[in-house]
């Protein structure tokens, strides 16, 4: 019975047709995987948050405390097993945002201020940026 499905009217094996369908299925499968894995958004969110925080720091006057909603970023970080307090780092006048396992995104700011960044303990969505003198 099974054999009949793979035979044409003359009883010959539909070899090339089967190969053709399998190749098509593999092709679309690979591309679906590629699209869904790319649309995770880690790179896009890292860039957006780093630039947003750098602008906040540049426009802030000491002493100022800013609470930034990073809900989407924190979800991505959690998915990639990144600790919340590792998401935003301020080093050598640069904001570094890390949401994935492969490094992060760095963006510099030009003012000479002491800045600290830490997750808001009260909520799992916000990050607190403190601009000190």
């Amino acid at each position: 019975m099974k054999k009949d499905l793979l035979l044409d009217k003359t009883g010959k094996m539909l070899f090339w047709e089967v190969i053709f369908i399998v190749l098509n299925a593999m092709f679309f499968g690979i591309f679906l995987i590629f699209v869904f894995s790319s649309s995770g958004g880690v790179v896009v969110y890292e860039q957006a948050y780093a630039k947003q925080i750098a602008l906040i720091i540049e426009e802030a006057k000491p002493v100022m405390e800013v609470k930034l909603n990073m809900e989407e970023g924190m979800k991505l970080a959690e998915k990639n097993n990144i600790d919340f307090d590792e998401i935003v780092k301020i080093k050598n006048n640069a904001v570094i945002v890390k949401l994935g396992r492969k490094g992060g995104y760095s963006y510099s700011f030009f003012n000479d201020v002491n800045v600290t960044a830490s997750p808001d303990i009260a909520s799992n969505k916000d990050y607190i940026i403190k601009v000190n003198a």
Partner: peptide
């Protein structure tokens, strides 16, 4: 499809003009 997705995800948000403005204000 691959090129489109790559272009989308490599798109930069350009804030240089805003930064130049911030520096001017400062």
């Amino acid at each position: 499809i691959a090129a489109g997705v790559s272009i989308y995800h490599s798109a930069e948000v350009d804030i240089r003009e805003i930064e130049a403005g911030n520096l001017y204000e400062k």
